[in-house]
Design a binder for these strands. Structure first.
Lengths: 217, 217
DNA sequence: GTCTATAATAAGATAGAC
DNA sequence: GTCTATCTTATTATAGAC
């Protein structure tokens, strides 16, 4: 394997463990058994490396999301069954860790964290990478959930992304609130299904007007 | 105001903006208009300061959660209505930003992020701070949702925390998937209510057996 | 308790040989 | 393309005067 890829692989792994900010180039190059200078040769800077690590996984992930969405539109027309739509969005994300070809065992944890890290220098870049997916799925969700007004849909999709991000971010804090026993049940298919059921429930919950503070706009 | 508190306040604010790892003590002491050495005098080290920043907000937050839980148990006995239970858990967290007395305008963003940051040196300490709340609320949720088995409850509470964490982490990436227009509707009461409706839908969603991969244990 | 000065370390970046 | 050696800067931490 070439140095370029080895660097990306080890950077990914170390970022997952300690976060990009706490991971030095020295640690990465040592793990990848390459020279410190090679990072700058291949990626220009640490920021360039970080960008490359994200790009390598996110582009195929979002391509898969759009492929699935396209397929669903062909089968169902404009209005896609909610459960299918949810799965088309979350499965490619959670599946990163599953498919050995994607090798994202570590990556999903990084990505999950990044979604709650607004201060990251990556923010604008990530937004750009997700723009197309965000737009198309929002439209599809609006069609599948015509009963929700624009604001309500906005917030619920926000909640959806949050739940997904937390799932992706891994098992560390996962045990904070829930059971402390370890789970072998990390099977991705199961998780996708469990999450999809939860999200469908949340997205379709009947809106009840706020008792004390009715909506005025 | 004394130096101790000024340091905590500015650290909190800067952590929210850039994250603890990317915030230097120099930046903090400059903003707080105190000497660099005073951080070590009061908190021993940067790690000590970070711990203090978290402790100051989390302890009252969790005390308020337990207070509300106690009150609900007195009113309803063992089985608390789900919606009340959800609100008792999320309102003190989201309310941090609201009540000026708590002054957590910045803090909730830090906390939200930390939940998806398993590599943080704080992890064990946070778990300790949350232990009591986690245990009591898990029991209460199990009573309110007897139809869910242990595993299913585990995951759904996990999803719940994830959604809450994302909400707390702030508006940065909040716009990735959803509308790009800015919202003035950041009113906390509204948000608590919106989130509670969503979570209730998710928590009570009927479990459907996984079609392709039935649960075998 | 507060401050200045400085130590000790670690980091990203680069020059230049091969 | 690859590597060694080094530069420059930034950071945490501490010693010691006041």
């Amino acid at each position: 394997m070439n140095a370029n890829e080895r660097i990306l692989d080890m950077a990914e792994q170390l970022f997952a463990e300690r976060g990009p900010a706490r991971t030095s180039l020295r640690a990465i190059t040592a793990a990848a058994e390459v020279n410190l200078a090679s990072v700058h040769y291949y990626f220009g800077s640490k920021a360039g490396l970080i960008k490359a690590v994200f790009e390598r996984r996110i582009k195929p992930m979002n391509a898969e999301r759009l492929r699935r969405l396209e397929q669903l539109h062909q089968r169902h027309g404009e209005i896609i069954p909610l459960e299918s739509l949810i799965e088309a969005f979350i499965a490619p994300a959670l599946g990163l860790s599953r498919d050995p070809k994607h090798g994202g065992e570590y990556f999903i944890r990084i990505l999950g964290r990044t979604y709650t890290d607004p201060s990251s220098p990556l923010e604008a870049y990530l937004q750009e990478l997700h723009k197309d997916v965000a737009e198309r799925f929002r439209t599809a969700f609006q069609s599948a959930l015509p009963q929700l007004d624009h604001d309500e849909l906005y917030w619920r999709l926000h909640f959806l992304v949050g739940t997904l991000a937390y799932c992706m971010s891994g098992s560390g804090t996962m045990r904070l609130i829930a059971s402390s026993r370890l789970h072998n049940d990390t099977d991705t298919q199961q998780l996708v299904h469990r999450l999809a059921v939860f999200l469908r429930g949340g997205l379709t919950a009947a809106t009840v007007p706020h008792p004390e503070q009715p909506h005025v706009s």
